[in-house]
Amino acid sequence: MIQLKNIERSYKTAAGQSWVLRRINLEIEQGEFITIMGPSGAGKSSLLNVLALLDDAWQGEYWFREEAAHQMKRKQRGELAKKNIGVVFQSYHLLDDLTVRENIDLPLSYKDIPNKQRQGMVADALDRFQMVAKKDLFPSQLSGGQQQLVGIARAVIHKPSLLLADEPTGNLHSSQAKEIMELFLELNKQGTTIVQVTHSEANAAYGSRTIQLRDGWMVSDTAHPEFVSGAAVVNQ
């Protein structure tokens, strides 16, 4: 589904160039549930941003279902992301001024979908995530777990094939975290490819494959135990 070849990302700082991703080569198959782990500053979120096509300033090759995203213009990448990718954030990033229903509807409003169809899709999502009774509430009236549920509903409303989650349970109580992870598993079973970033081993256990990052290098991949990281090569 996705092929990353020699992906690199750096920032210019006063001290020189600071690398956050180094020669990342990664292949993601349809239906996988991947967990990206690593200490703070390892490049997990940066890799997620690259996968989400939110970042533009990386080098390397990014193939999405045989389409060369690295050769696309910004607008084309945006279109590709809009059709295929959903993102769940650690801080939910719900819009305070919009109700639950309006927050869920937001990604649809940026697509050319007739209003009636949109209403139907939002109603389905509310039903599916058991949020019908809360559809007219504002985010500030919900608990953290409920807010993340809305965040997930918003991320999957347009039925993306790839769901990216950046520390989705980072701000939640363990019982709420468990519910969310169960939901991810359910979505994965229904065919959605999921890539999550987490520090939690328990959450990682829901995934089918774990990738470890350190200092921007990919250092291990449970799908490829024989994997030798670029960092190790460089160190040798």
Binding site: A52, L54, K75, G78, A81, K82, V87, F89, H93, L95, L106, P107, Y110, K111, R154, H158
Partner: peptide, 16 residues
């Protein structure tokens, strides 16, 4: 800024 970033992340285009 944050809200606009979220909207862009959720698919909003420049014109939106």
């Amino acid at each position: 800024t944050k809200e606009l970033g979220v909207r862009i992340a959720l698919g909003a285009e420049r014109k939106n």
